[in-house]
Every structure is written in C-alpha cells, then in structure tokens.
Design a protein around this nucleic acid. Structure first.
Length: 470
RNA sequence: GGUCCCAUCGUCUAGCGGUCUAGGACGUGGCCCUCUCAAGGCUAAAACACGGGUUCGAUUCCCGUUGGGACCGCCA
C-alpha cells in the first residue's frame, strides 16, 4: 500500500521557481517521503508562448538547491501532444466533447457583456449541438460538462466540497491551433503517470470538479486531492513580485540556507505542536495532512531571517566556511579562485556565526579577518583611538610583542594585568583594541578576534593604531 | 457579479466541548549577562471578528452576518 503512493509537482515554466511553488513541491516531497512513495516532476509547458527552456532550468535549479529530489521526470507536456490529441479525438467520437467555432474575440465580447450586465461569466453552449462545421474557422474542442447534479471533491485538507454542475462550463480542451489546454493535460498526465494524490495550491480547487468530469469521461479512477492554503503577502493578497523577493534562488543570493527556507515554508500552514525547528528527518516523520491548516498564511520575512540565523548557528563552522566562500568573492573580499586556508576560515567563521543572520552578513563580517589592512570607521577611530587609549595600546603592543600564546586563555591574563596596572575597566582597553583590529566597534570577544587574526597581523595593526594617534 | 475556500495576539501557529485567568514562535518594550555586537536567560504588552443557536458547559459543533482570499482565459 505505502509503496504505491505517487505524487507530482507540476510547475509551468513561465517564471522562476517561486515561494508558493516551492512550498507545493515541498509538501508533495514530504508526503512522498513520509509514505515511501514516488515524487514525479512534470513540466506543464503547453502554453508555448510563455514557456521557456530557461525557466525549466531555473525551476530545476531551485528544486535542487532546496534538495527536493524527484524520482521520475522531468516530463514535458510538449513531448506528449500526440497523446493528448488521441484522447481528445476519443472524447469527440464519443460525443463527450465537441467542436466550437466561436472566436476568441467573440468570446471576449460576451464575457465583457456578461460582466457589464452582472451575469455569470460562463460559456453559453451555443456550439454544443451544432451539426455542421462553420466554414473558414478553426474550431476549438470543448468538453461537454454535465449540467445536472453535483460534483463532490473529497479533499484531504478541506473535506467534502460540493459544486453544482450547472455552475460549471464547457471548458476548452483543445485550442484552435490544435494544442491541448491545462485542465485536460493535467488529467491525462495524472492518469498516465498513475498519480494517486494530487497535492497543489488552493487556487486549483475550483478547477477540480471540471477535472473530475474529465476523469469520468475518460473512464478513469479519481485520485485523492489535497489543496494547500495559499501564501499571501503582507497586504494579504496573493504573494507576487510586489511583495519583494519571491524567486527561490533570490534567497540563495541573499545568503539563506535551503534548510532554513524549507523549515520556514513547511511551517506556513503545517505545524507539529509548538515545535519551530525541524530536521528533514523530523519533517518526513511528522508530516501529515491532518496537521495542515486551512487558512492562507502571510509570508513573514522576519521570521524566515530568524530561522536562517538558527540554521547558521547550528551549522558546523567547516561547512559554513565552504558555503560562505562564494559570498566572499561576491563581496570582493577575496578574488575569484583565491585559495584560503579553510581550517583557519572555519575558526574565523566560528567566532562570527552567531552574529550573522545570512551568509551575506557572515561574508561581510569576515572582511577584517581576511584583508591586509582594516578600514576604520571614522566615528570609532575618533572615539577610541585617541590620547586616552594611547598608553594602553602602547603597553599592550609591548606586552604582546614578547608574548607567544595568542589563545584566548593565553591572552586574557595579559589584558587583565594591563587593566589593573592602569586602573581602568576592561572596556577601556578592549574597545580601542577592537577598533585597531577590526576598524569598528562591533566584533566577537576581543580575545577570539586576536586569536584568529594571529600575532603577526595583530601587532601590525596595533602599531598602525599607535601611529595614527601619534 | 457568480462559484468556492477561509477566519485565535501585528505575523506564523497550539487548541480537536470542561485542563483557557487561551500556550509557543517571530517581531516589539524592559531587565539580567557583558570588553562591543551578538547569542542566551527572565519579563511585559498583544488574539478566540460579530450575532444567533446546540449543550449543564463553547475558542472548540451548527446557522447567519461581516471581513479576507482564490477562481470564473484558446494561462497554468
């Protein structure tokens, strides 16, 4: 039983993989993994004017970055046009579909008229019982949707949703250019690919009864449905570019970790008690539609940022050092291809990882560890590199010059002794040193900073600071 | 306009008739820790949309109102 579950993610390549699509993919992936089922990737590119290969690549790139691996596909609907046409032909033969000669313009006009008159926008069925072709026109094929009775969508999340068949219209399944449309191909493919559970956005709920009729007309079993609540922007409308970054890869570029995004996305609509942070294994184990909510959720970048920080803190420094390297290049802190001592970088990262919310922030904060000479923040310089701190810095420089142990434990007594000698608080010494080492007033603990910078560079920077004041 | 969906703090949510003076998380304020910044700890403010039922008892069940959303395409 469990090994027969088959789900799919079926994006249309008319844009990048976006946040909403990613979450749909994620829920499909989780359901498949939870049940030991198969996850199929299918590209719905029947709209040839808007679909591009570039976007197919972009979607795959996004899926891979998020680590949502699929077992079958990617299949492309454009490769299957022949299959769809055969099915259309079959339905026409059986009288379950018919040719419609109304032009797109006429339809458009009638739609406007209906809106103006406040009438339902529905195809009026005027070609339903046409006997003869209308010359000089390329017809479309419409599906003859039953107009009596009702159709029940049995949804794993919503429960039973009832539609009056009289409300459903005869949808176009084959365009006048002989290409099939979504509502038809989706059914044919889900049947052909033996999809058992259709997990998709709420925006498809209204399409579902129409598709159910197509399943029936074709004589196929109807799969289970699960319609996920939408993700909204801060203004509670459907998430779109207006709300800022919606492309998944934009989050890569902003320095987010894929696991953080996944964790955030799954909690939009799904919960497991009070738990906020989940490993993939936990997600797979705990996932169930029973715990998926019904209400749309507002995308909250702040919480995602917090989660990302949690993940950065929990990532081993060695791993983080690897991940941050491309960002060091982007920030022009190192050159493309420049080799870094990765063990050292990991130590540097370790001092900074609880201070960075993104890899971009981490890269930026790594700057003073890596570059030869620090650039001073003017205010910091003014406040801490002055006559008051000069004797402290000089003394420290002398003390450190003959001091070999640059570890936290080795450094601390030197500072303590100096502070005592001068009768000042630690801050009076630490802050000037911090400015000398980093150029600014914010950094990890001063001993950690010195430890990472190392004796040679540290002394150079101290001398530089002293010379600036003098 | 029609159809459908939805409704707990600003946001994500827990709650599946009594345990609710409604819990957690993000964010916000305060305090603690402290060499700065973080992290961490403590703490505060902050919600059951409204009106009817059902019930001994409703945040929880039903109906309505209101509000929000989605769909209504020869897009998916």
């Amino acid at each position: 039983m469990t090994d027969t579950i088959r789900v799919r993610f079926a994006p249309s390549p008319t844009g990048h993989l976006h946040i909403g699509g990613a979450r749909t993919a994620l829920f499909n992936w989780l359901y498949a993994r939870h049940n030991g089922g198969t996850f199929v990737l299918r590209i719905e590119d029947t709209d040839r004017t808007r679909s591009t290969d570039e976007y197919i690549e972009a979607i795959i790139e996004g899926m891979k970055w998020l680590n949502l691996e699929w077992q079958e596909g990617p299949f492309r609907q454009t490769d299957r046009f022949g299959v769809y046409r055969d099915y259309v032909e079959k339905l026409v033969q059986e009288g379950k579909a018919y040719h419609c000669y109304c032009s797109a313009e006429e339809l458009e006009q009638r739609r406007h008229l209906a809106i103006a008159q406040g009438k339902p926008q529905k195809y009026d069925g005027r070609c339903r019982d046409l006997k003869d072709p209308v010359p000089g026109r390329n017809p479309v094929v419409r599906f003859r949707t039953p107009q009596q009775g009702e159709t029940v969508v049995d949804d794993l999340i919503r429960g039973s949703v009832v539609f009056e068949n009289s409300q459903l219209d005869d949808l176009i399944i084959l365009r006048s250019d002989n290409t099939p449309t979504y509502n038809f191909t989706v059914v044919v493919d889900d049947v052909d690919m033996r999809i058992t559970h259709v997990i998709r956005g709420d925006d498809h709920l209204n399409n579902t009864p129409k598709q159910i009729h197509i399943y029936r007309a074709l004589g196929y079993e109807i799969p289970k449905f699960a319609h996920l609540p939408m993700i909204l922007g801060a203004d509670k409308t459907r998430l779109s570019k207006r709300h800022g970054a919606t492309s998944v890869m934009a989050y890569y570029e902003m320095g987010y970790l894929p696991d953080a995004l996944v964790n955030y996305l799954v909690r939009l609509g799904w919960s497991h008690g009070d738990q906020e942070v989940f490993s993939r294994e936990e997600l797979i184990n705990y996932f169930s539609f029973e715990n998926v909510g019904n209400a749309a959720a507002v995308f909250n970048p702040e919480k995602l940022l917090w989660l990302n920080q949690q993940y950065i803190m929990a990532t081993p420094p060695e791993k983080l050092a690897e991940l941050v390297t491309p960002f060091l290049v982007k920030e022009t802190i190192i050159a493309e291809g420049q080799a870094l001592d990765m063990a050292w970088l990991a130590r540097a990262v370790k001092t900074l990882q609880e201070r960075a919310k993104t890899l971009v922030e981490l890269a930026k904060s790594l700057r003073y560890y890596i570059v030869e000479e620090v650039t001073f923040d003017e205010k910091a310089k003014e406040k801490f590199l002055n006559d008051k701190s000069l004797p402290l810095l000089k003394d420290l420089n002398n003390a450190l010059a003959s001091h070999a142990d640059f570890s936290h434990a080795g450094l601390e007594p030197v500072f303590k002794a100096l502070v005592e000698k001068h009768g000042v608080k630690l801050g009076a010494l630490a802050q000037p040193v911090r400015v000398a080492m980093t150029g600014g007033t914010e950094s990890p603990g001063i001993y950690e900073v010195l430890e990472v910078i190392g004796k040679e560079k540290a002394l150079k920077r101290l001398e530089k600071a002293v010379s600036i004041i003098a």
